[in-house]
């Protein structure tokens, strides 16, 4: 179940009255204004919206990379906006997998070593780590590229390594910020196939930001971010307004 009216309860992700303002120079920019969102575990959500509408900002807030100006972000019952520094870092490593548009692999480490990074924060033994890394790389179809460095891989392969890194520690939530934005159609489709599989077979809760309507169709729910808040896209392609906005 996905709701944007703030009326859900007990969802995996519960966002209430979320405000995010940025100050640049003298002026303040209201990026998110009173945003509500409830997402149950296992949902696959796509966010669309014009550039600068705050999609990345929203993902960063869900992933604990940024803190809200006001409002609440509860994930699995934890109020993550209250965590800070070391605790927040530890929380991220357990619950969130990030997939970025530019892959963000560490260029001096091999595919294997890149994927292994999140496991270095666990208590797993070296042998267990190897097993997990191999399984993750196998899932994205790159078992034969473990010793390659990022510069020896194509963009699509790099993004697959990044996906393996995001899932290797088995997080509940995957945050994907335009993961196909830098890829051609074919490579992008491969990435979307993997993400769809992670949703269907592995029951990951996935948030996908994209500018591509075809990519967005993979998701179970399409949400539109506009003027700082979320609108749900109805079956007929129109945006349903939040109740309190209906009269305006």
């Amino acid at each position: 179940m996905v709701r944007v009216d703030g009326k859900g309860s007990g969802a995996l992700v519960e966002i209430r009255s979320l405000d995010k303002k940025y100050r640049r120079g003298g002026e303040e920019i209201d990026v998110l204004r009173g945003l509500n969102l409830d997402v149950d575990a296992g949902e696959f959500i796509a966010f669309m919206g014009p550039s600068g509408s705050g999609k990345t900002t929203l993902l960063n807030l869900i992933g604990g990379l940024d803190t809200p100006t006001s409002g609440a972000v509860r994930i699995g019952g934890d109020e993550i906006s209250r965590l800070s520094g070391r605790k927040l870092a530890a929380w991220r490593s357990r619950h969130i997998g990030f997939i970025f548009q530019m892959y963000n692999l560490i260029p001096v480490l091999t595919a294997f070593q890149n994927v292994q990074l999140p496991l270095l924060l666990t208590n797993l033994s070296k042998a267990e780590r190897r097993k997990h890394v191999e399984a993750a790389l196998d899932l994205v179809g790159l078992s034969d590229r473990m010793r390659h460095y990022p510069r020896q891989l194509s963009g699509g392969q790099e993004q697959r390594v990044a996906i393996a890194r995001a899932i290797v520690a088995d997080p509940t939530i995957l945050l994907c910020d335009e993961p196909t934005g830098d890829l051609d159609r074919a490579a992008g489709d491969e990435i979307l196939d993997i993400i769809s599989r992670l949703s269907k077979e592995y029951k990951k809760t996935i948030f996908l930001v994209t500018h591509d309507p075809i990519a967005a169709k993979r998701a179970g729910t399409l949400l539109h971010l506009d003027k700082g808040t979320l609108l749900e896209c109805t079956a007929d392609g129109l945006f349903a307004c939040k109740p309190e906005d209906a009269g305006k």
Binding site: G63, A89, A90, R92, I106, P118
Partner: peptide, 15 residues
């Protein structure tokens, strides 16, 4: 800086 940010996003602590 992007590498550092990535490592931190993955959960490596400031320390």
């Amino acid at each position: 800086s992007a590498e550092i940010a990535t490592l931190k996003a993955l959960g490596f602590s400031p320390a």
